[in-house]
Amino acid sequence: MLRAEKLTKRFEKLTAVDALDLEVREGEVFGFLGPNGAGKTTTIRLLSALIAPTSGTAEIAGFRLGRDDASIRAAVGVLTEHPGLYERLSAHDNLDFYARLYGLPDGLRVARVEHFLRLMGLWDRRHDPIATYSRGMKQKVAIARAALHEPKIIFLDEPTTGLDPDAAKTVRDLILALRAEGRTVFLCTHNLDEADRLCDRIALFRRRTVRVDTPTNLRREVYGAWTEIRLREARPEHLRRVQAVEGVRNASLFDSTLRVDLDDPLRTNPKVIRALVEVGADVAFVTEGKPSLEDVYLQIMEQQS
């Protein structure tokens, strides 16, 4: 759905995006994570044909960047960092205006505007000026604007920043609904928990792509796999027995919890549990060790810098 090769953008002496290679698959939610100033917004502007690359190429929804720019803009939807709505106009008039700019035929325009106003729960307030809306309501209108013309790819730049939990959940549900419709979502966010919950794959980015993979694989790559076993009463021999199990790389004991590092949890976990039971340990809980995406992100970024 989207492929960039050596995409570069320089602003005089500053290289904002440096030889970006990226491939985004159809129908996935693709997370684009990076620190402030990493060039995420510039990347979105490049991929939505708002600014021209200094070098490199990209193909977006089947259109060539630099050759089919108007077609790319027609095929993608963009939620910018700020809602950017006409405050004196109503939600209805804002959406109707953009539907016209995207060239939606009359009947479809009316239907799409109504669909999104109802979907966002704004139908009853559709004629109120945007200036009277809360931040969350404005963000909903801005997302509706980005999705109005049924784009194949939707770029979302920090869609839940500044929203209360209810509004953020609505936005997240909408992202999942867009994916369910088969649309590709390119999600720029600082909210790593959100990225973890929503994204099929994640790119860690700082001027160029640092790493691309699923959240699970990134975790495993950085921290490996481990299992946490809570015992009713832990003793040193329990630890020694677990350390002796084949497939266990390392084991450590904190209070009454054993942390067991292993390469193949599916094969090794049953052996560990059997070994513990054999030495008389009372196993209370067994859980899969899962570092937060934030830990993974920080670790990878630290390695890079």
Binding site: F63, L89, P151
Partner: peptide
């Protein structure tokens, strides 16, 4: 990768939409 069919606005429709939007906004600005 096949190209997506996208709606393309007519130039006159764009100009008309922007002009009317500008006027609608201006009329609310005392």
């Amino acid at each position: 990768m096949s190209a997506t069919v996208a709606y393309v606005p007519r130039r006159t429709a764009v100009v008309r939409a922007v002009v009317l939007r500008e006027w609608r906004e201006a009329l609310t600005n005392k």
